[in-house]
């Protein structure tokens, strides 16, 4: 029997020069999961891919459609609302304030810049009497339904 020098198995993962790579890969995966994993959960808007996508809600009662949009920190003048062929579009721009430019920035998680959201309206609305209010960073647009879109009650006379 000859004595040979003992070798560790060639593909011993522990010693593999690629071991570092797996860790690195894991780390990159984690980063991507953190960044994009959220997107797959319901209720999350794909903000990372599309910039600022403010949350929009649509409500309906018998007289009106109501749209609510979360737009914290806007100026009233910077919000545009338009109605075109049954689509309501809310757009605007959140501008960065001067004071952010001085000093050292640690975190900028708040979105800045332009956004635009469009919603198809399920009923005809009366263009003349649309009303919008902006309070506590939430925009509320009330669109009264056109007369012919309101549910009508028909009396049936029973003889």
């Amino acid at each position: 029997m000859t004595l040979t020098r003992w070798h560790k198995p060639e593909h011993n993962w522990e010693l593999s020069p690629f071991r570092g790579m797996t860790t690195l890969r894991d780390e990159i995966d984690t980063i991507f999961d953190r960044a994009f994993g959220q997107l797959l959960q319901p209720g999350h808007s794909p903000q990372l891919l599309a910039g600022w996508v403010p949350a929009v809600d649509l409500y309906e009662d018998k007289d009106a459609l109501t749209v609510k949009c979360e737009l914290p920190g806007m100026k009233k003048e910077d919000i545009d609302i338009s109605l075109h062929e049954g689509f309501l579009t809310i757009s605007g721009e959140r501008k960065s304030e001067q004071k952010k430019k001085e000093g050292e920035v640690y975190r900028t998680e708040r979105y800045e810049g332009r956004f635009s959201r469009s919603l198809a309206l399920s009923s005809k609305v009366n263009h003349e009497s649309i009303n919008a209010t902006y309070k506590d960073g939430v925009l509320t647009v009330v669109l009264p339904k056109a007369e012919d879109a309101k549910p009508k009650q028909i009396h049936v006379n029973v003889k």
Binding site: G43, A55, D57, L58, Y59, D61, L65, S122
Partner: peptide, 12 residues
């Protein structure tokens, strides 16, 4: 919105 039906909701 009181007495209204939610057609679409993104806010949580």
């Amino acid at each position: 919105v009181p007495n209204a039906e939610v057609l679409y909701q993104e806010s949580r």
